[in-house]
Nucleic acid binder design. Structure first.
Lengths: 172, 172
DNA sequence: AGGCAATAGTTAGCCCCCTAATCACCTTGG
DNA sequence: CCAAGGTGATTAGGGGGCTAACTATTGCCT
């Protein structure tokens, strides 16, 4: 498991230790390992999610947008979507373009703001969500099936704290 | 903290419950929440990492490649890099292109395989790693600073198991 | 009222990652 | 010994995300 070259994906404690020593730093190798594993895990999970949504002709971003729209009654402005999904407005434009091309959402001008637009979930979009719901949620559940209820609670807590800590990466 | 609209980023248990109910599924909302939070956290951390590496004129992928190269004595074939970093060979080609353009690595033809190339860490590349080491590792350490030693160990374990579970997303 | 900063949305250009297809070279087996 | 299949690397084309810059509209403030 700590072998080299075979699994080739998860960074090891040895690697972290070697690096820290190589530069003569006084940093805890385990802390580095946790950080590196999290970054690596994030990428892996992200790609798995992308493959998952591809089955339904969607991507992670497009699904999140659709689901958020539905949860909000089927209508929302792009700016609001950007804030709620925590991505840039430009990204929302791109996601809406794709979803509109497939007829899963529609854009209509805002009635109360001349600059504004509102994204509307179409019947087709709602249908797509319905069609995939069972398999989608089933797989999500299976993904965390290896953890007990208590472990899940602990994981949620730790994850939230590390995510908060990740601000330290980008700070300044 | 479970309020809506303010933090606008982390999905809530309420949302998960609403969705599951909406489709009349027998799925544990907490399990869904954990999965969704993980996916969302992965994206967030990934973007933070990208911003972090941008400070040094690198990206996550480029840094990982450089670090792996150094840890391996400064030389490795693209295929080997692809396997060890767990990305496609095409991605490695792109990363090497960028790094070569900046003079951080060089490509030279393999001596024992006419098809092969080997990526070599240049002095400039090694220097770049040295220059950023202190800040880089310091920030990584700060990122997980909110967790105690024991919590880090627990987190590593849970993370590994969830990542293993993420195969369930892409399976079939 | 008139000017000007703030906001909504889009566009353009960049990087990362992917898959599929291509070309070159290696290796094996009839 | 040479054809066929395998492997190394690249290219082409796609999607997602970002920032910065641009257009249009709003709304505040003097």
């Amino acid at each position: 498991m700590t072998r080299d070259g075979i699994d080739g994906e998860a960074p090891t404690l040895d690697q972290a230790r070697r690096q820290v020593e190589h530069y003569g730093l006084e940093v805890d190798p385990q802390a580095v390992l946790v950080a590196v594993r999290l970054i690596s895990a994030g990428a892996r999970v992200g790609r798995a999610a992308e493959a998952h949504f591809a089955r339904f002709g969607l991507s992670t971003g497009r699904y999140r947008l659709l689901a958020d729209l539905e949860d909000h009654g089927g209508e929302k402005s792009p700016s609001r979507l950007a804030a709620d999904l925590d991505v840039s407005r430009a990204t929302i434009t791109g996601l809406l373009d794709g979803l509109e091309r497939e007829g899963l959402i529609a854009r209509r001008p805002s009635t109360e703001d001349g600059r504004g637009t509102v994204a509307v979930l179409t019947a087709r979009g709602a249908q797509r969500l319905r069609d995939m719901a069972s398999e989608h949620f089933g797989r999500l559940e299976a993904m965390v099936g290896g953890l007990s209820i208590e472990e899940r609670a602990v994981f949620l807590d730790l994850l939230a704290r590390v995510v908060r800590g990740s601000a330290a990466l980008a700070a300044d």
